[in-house]
Design a protein around this nucleic acid. Structure first.
Lengths: 116, 116
DNA sequence: CCCTTATTGTAAGAAAATCTAACAAACTTT
DNA sequence: AAAGTTTGTTAGATTTTCTTACAATAAGGG
């Protein structure tokens, strides 16, 4: 686990990156880990649910986070939830996450500006 | 991060497995992550320094731990240390690890036998 | 200096893995 | 009924990996 400073200009900011986010897994392995067919995995990408990186020549690379996400998607699908709805839910979650992040950044900036 | 119970018979035992140990990375990606050539990576395997898994058809799969190990090896090599010596050092470390593990297992067994 | 071992690059050819695009089937929604 | 969703399968091309072999360079020992 390692840290990457990335303060843009005046604001306070930081990021924590772990192996879970590294896009290093090929689709065949993702298939083995999730039980999903490669067809399904590519289709969920087409529907905007996952975003693998690509090698220079175009082969997909997934992270462990992607694998976990795909397993969640598989569960939702078994419950009959369509990809469109899953997408909507993900957008909402993403929105909430952004709000929390902005609040945190605000708190930190306030704190550091105060004692400068 | 998840836990796997694996008590064999009477002894107390446990294992903690994380993504770092999962062998899911192909040699091309290991090359990108470490800067080592694929030739070097295969050679270090030949010299008994790394032990990737293999797919059914034979393609190598590495873990993040393997990647870290290979980076350590790369550093040693830059210092001029030969693979043979690196191997010896690794064996010693492995031995120490085993001793510690056995002691821990002994402590745990003693503890649980005491109050049974 | 000669010989051996260690390390790495490169090449060749085969095999494995992945990619895209298309068609079809089975369902679900509208 | 028509349109949209989801998945399998197939075909052909491309990318990635594998093994084996040969060569070059470096390092160490006698």
């Amino acid at each position: 686990m390692y840290y990457t400073g990335n303060d843009h200009g005046l604001g306070v900011s930081f990021a924590l990156t772990s192996y879970k986010d590294k896009k290093v897994i090929t689709i065949g392995v993702v298939h083995e880990l999730t039980g999903l067919s490669e067809r399904q995995i590519r289709y969920y990408e087409e529907r905007g649910l996952v975003f693998p990186d690509r090698s220079k020549k175009g082969t997909r690379k997934y992270s462990f986070n992607d694998v976990e996400l795909l397993m969640d998607i598989a569960n939702k699908r078994e419950e009959g939830v369509q990809t469109y709805e899953i997408r909507q839910d993900m957008k909402k979650e993403e929105k909430k996450r952004q709000v929390r992040e902005e609040m945190l950044r605000g708190q930190l900036n306030a704190h550091f500006n105060m004692r400068k």
